[in-house]
Every structure is written in structure tokens, then in C-alpha cells.
Simulated scan of single mutants.
Amino acid sequence: MQRTQNEVILITPRFSKTLKKAKIEFDKIHHFLVRDPLVKETLFTSSSKFYSVLRAVNLFFSFVVFIPIIGSFRDFNLPHFLGYLLSAFGVYLTWVFEWVTKSTILEEIRTVTIIQISLHSVFGMWYHFYDYFKIYDFILHITGGIWLSFLIYPLVMGSELIWAKMKMPFFFLKIFVVTFSIVMTLGVFWEIGEFISDLIFRDYPGYRMAQEESLFDTMTDFIGNLIGSIAGIFIFWNTLKRLNKSRDMDSLLERIGSALRDYVNSF
């Protein structure tokens, strides 16, 4: 059935309005990625130029996680496809966090995020490193603990500096306990997710059991997370101490904590 001229005229403005709205939203995202962040410096330097370059590099390489998503359409495997989508969401969650809270994820930590998730989704799942190298899963749980410590530690320390106003006695111990607790809790949720995934997809053709129905596998994952989280906390703490000799790192983290405080107080 052919559309009348009046119907075509009605549809065209609606389509144009949709495109206009899409352009407005895209412009907002572009403006945010380029200009909006409160902290426009990185962990290792206060150079805004270096920050802009590293942010652009991170944005470019974040598309790596789409390789298995696109490639999986050829030999579609639902549980793996969902895993690839979850991994991509994990990468872009760092930008979503900044967008929502107006706080900042330091760009070097975003780089580590992209690498860690790519090691899991692209190399571990897509290129089957989990199957080829039995120790690969344990290594990624260690690096995963380090990565989460890097991600969470500055947020916890920045918040503590804002609310406590100064470094009280046992300051490092308090940050250590809070960061460690969050990292290990996230590790528990990851294992629960693997357990549920195995229950749902265990009979799906081509599905690789995440826990291999083994208490040994689950416990070694926890041990890997434990080693990684402790190592990550001490690495980050000692890095801050070295950088504090030539730069006020507390001020940098306080600005991150201040944005988080404002976001929490907005509710």
C-alpha cells in the first residue's frame, strides 16, 4: 500500500526531530568526554595536555572490547555473547560513573581497566586463553584484585580526606580495611555470578563452565583476589607517597572526594 503525500509529510518532521534529539544527546556526550570532568589531570602528572591525550587514547582503545561482540555473531553463543556485553559495560561504566557523580576516574586507572577487561573478554574468552593456559584464570584474579584496588582506593581515600578533613592516626589502616573489604565483596559477587551462570547455561552447547564444579577453583579465585587486592593497595599507597614529594596528591584526591560528597548530598 502506497503512503499518501500527507502521511509522508507527517513522518518526515518526526524523523527529523528524532535525529535532532540524537544529535543533541551526542553533543552532550562529546562535550562531557572532552571538557566536563572536574579533575583534568592524571595520577602521574598535572599536565592537562597529557590528560587530554591519555583520555583520547583510552576512548579509542575502549572499542577493543567490541571485537568479540561483533565477531560472535558468526558463531552465536548466547552465554558468551552476554559475557562480552557485560565486559563492554564494565569498561564504559567508568565514564558512566563520571557522568552521574561528576567525580573522576584517574586516566591511568581507566587504562588498567581497559587492559584487565580485555584480558578477560578478548584474550580469555574470545581467544580461549582460559582453555589453553590453566594458570591464566588465577593470574587474572590476581591482576583483577590489583585493578579493583587501584579503582577503589582513590575514591575511598578522597572521600575520607573530605569527611575527616585531615589524616588521623591509623589513616592508612582505615583506607586499607575499607578498600580491601569492597574489593573482596566484589570478588564474592563475581563468584556468585559464575555459579549462577553455570546453573543456567551448563547444558548450552559450547558453554565453558566458569567454576568447573570445583570448590578448589572457587577458593583459588578468592586467594587470587586476596593477593591482588593487598598488593594493589600497597602499590597505590607507596605510589602516592613517592608522588607526594613533588606534588600535592591529597589535593587531587580531595577534589575527587568532594565531587562524590556533593553527589551523595544531592539526594
Results as ranks from 00 to 15, higher is better:
residue 108 E to T: 08
residue 113 T to K: 08
residue 122 V to Y: 11
residue 112 V to P: 07
residue 121 S to C: 04
residue 135 I to Y: 15
residue 133 F to G: 13
residue 126 W to N: 11
residue 102 K to I: 02
residue 123 F to I: 06
residue 117 I to Q: 04
residue 124 G to E: 00
residue 105 I to M: 06
residue 104 T to R: 12
residue 125 M to K: 05
residue 118 S to H: 07
residue 126 W to K: 09
residue 109 I to K: 00
residue 115 I to W: 03
residue 103 S to A: 09
residue 128 H to K: 14
residue 111 T to Q: 11
residue 123 F to D: 01
residue 102 K to A: 06
residue 131 D to Y: 14
residue 130 Y to K: 02
residue 106 L to Q: 05
residue 126 W to A: 12
residue 130 Y to W: 07
residue 135 I to Q: 14
residue 106 L to W: 08
residue 127 Y to F: 15
residue 129 F to E: 12
residue 116 Q to D: 10
residue 128 H to Y: 13
residue 104 T to F: 10
residue 108 E to F: 01
residue 110 R to F: 14
residue 102 K to V: 02
residue 118 S to N: 02
residue 129 F to N: 10
residue 132 Y to E: 15
residue 126 W to I: 04
residue 129 F to V: 11
residue 133 F to P: 13
residue 112 V to F: 14
residue 134 K to A: 15
residue 129 F to S: 10
residue 102 K to E: 02
residue 123 F to Q: 00
residue 122 V to E: 01
residue 121 S to T: 01
residue 101 T to L: 00
residue 134 K to M: 15
residue 135 I to L: 14
residue 108 E to L: 06
residue 109 I to G: 05
residue 128 H to T: 10
residue 127 Y to M: 14
residue 110 R to A: 13
residue 113 T to H: 08
residue 119 L to H: 08
residue 125 M to T: 00
residue 135 I to C: 11
residue 135 I to E: 15
residue 118 S to E: 08
residue 135 I to K: 12
residue 107 E to H: 12
residue 132 Y to Q: 15
residue 114 I to G: 06
residue 109 I to E: 03
residue 101 T to V: 08
residue 130 Y to G: 08
residue 116 Q to M: 10
residue 115 I to V: 11
residue 133 F to S: 14
residue 118 S to G: 04
residue 123 F to W: 01
residue 122 V to D: 03
residue 135 I to N: 13
residue 135 I to D: 15
residue 122 V to K: 09
residue 120 H to P: 04
residue 129 F to R: 10
residue 124 G to C: 01
residue 104 T to N: 12
residue 134 K to P: 12
residue 110 R to K: 14
residue 133 F to T: 13
residue 124 G to T: 00
residue 103 S to E: 05
residue 118 S to D: 03
residue 133 F to M: 15
residue 114 I to A: 08
residue 116 Q to S: 11
residue 126 W to S: 09
residue 128 H to G: 07
residue 101 T to H: 03
residue 124 G to K: 02
residue 126 W to E: 13
residue 106 L to G: 06
residue 120 H to S: 06
residue 111 T to P: 11
residue 123 F to V: 07
residue 108 E to S: 02
residue 124 G to F: 03
residue 129 F to T: 11
residue 117 I to L: 01
residue 125 M to D: 04
residue 118 S to I: 06
residue 107 E to A: 11
residue 115 I to T: 03
residue 112 V to T: 09
residue 113 T to V: 10
residue 117 I to W: 00
residue 101 T to Y: 04
